[in-house]
């Protein structure tokens, strides 16, 4: 999940529109313009007392080590195992996941949408990068990129295909554009071949991408399709 602080790839996340991940420089290059700008800004803010170093560390630590997709996977596996919990989750997700301790920034208001035999859900934020941090952590680069934000609403089947996900023609694809502070999480279909599996076994099948809706959950033991 994390990279060491010494690793330098200043242009690894390139522009919103091209999404190229190539970098042909060696890592002894002088610091990039952006590195210097961020460094200068951080030094200024610390020196003037507008931010405190321990607060910066606490913020980073929270998202590198505490909040992440394992939270969402816990919720999904529990919903697969516990019908009353699932019903409560679909009715009032915010309160239901708060009972499990999942509260906080970018998870103040939550809606869970369920994939079924007839419905496939997909989440996007066309205007920025809204994402259920409390359950999934910080969004991946592709989620924030122009191609995904532009095309998820207009050609969801093509986008899903790029993730290797084929949604049959008869299924209604529902794309949720996160324009308000309501955050959306997909409840994937429980995979076949998981009868009698424990919650923790099920949890291992729940990927981050399946909770955004670009993929299905991992197959169970006897999956034959």
């Amino acid at each position: 999940m994390t990279v060491s602080p010494s690793r330098k790839q200043p242009d690894a996340e390139s522009s919103l529109s091209t999404m190229s991940h190539e970098h042909d420089h060696d890592h002894t290059d002088p610091p990039s313009d952006i590195e210097l700008r961020v460094k200068a800004l951080e030094s200024l803010l610390l020196e003037k007392g507008l931010v405190k170093q321990d607060a910066l560390n606490a913020i980073i630590e929270t998202y590198e080590h505490q909040v992440g997709p394992k939270n969402g996977a816990h919720v999904v596996a529990k919903a697969w195992s516990d019908l009353p919990f699932k019903q409560a989750l679909l009715e009032n997700a915010t309160a239901t996941v708060a009972d499990l301790g999942y509260v906080g920034r970018q998870g103040e208001h939550l809606t869970v949408v369920e994939n079924t035999l007839d419905i496939h859900n997909l989440v996007v934020c066309t205007l920025c990068s809204c994402y259920p941090w409390t359950l999934l952590g910080l969004p991946p680069v592709w989620y924030k990129s122009a191609p995904y934000r532009a095309r998820a609403v207009s050609e969801p089947r093509a986008v899903l295909y790029e993730f290797g996900t084929v949604v049959p023609e008869h299924k209604d694809i529902r794309v949720w554009d996160s324009t308000s502070e309501m955050r959306y999480l997909v409840l994937p279909e429980r995979p076949a071949g998981t009868k009698g599996w424990s919650e923790s076994q099920l949890q291992a099948l729940v990927t981050r991408n399946s909770m955004i809706g670009v993929e299905l959950a991992r197959p169970g033991a006897e999956e034959v399709k």
Partner: peptide, 22 residues
């Protein structure tokens, strides 16, 4: 804008450079 070109979920770091984290 072209295709999405997602990094595989298991390989993507949370931040791609120290300045992003900062």
């Amino acid at each position: 804008f072209g295709t999405v070109n997602a990094e595989p979920e298991s390989e993507e770091p949370l931040f791609h450079a120290e300045w992003e984290r900062r």
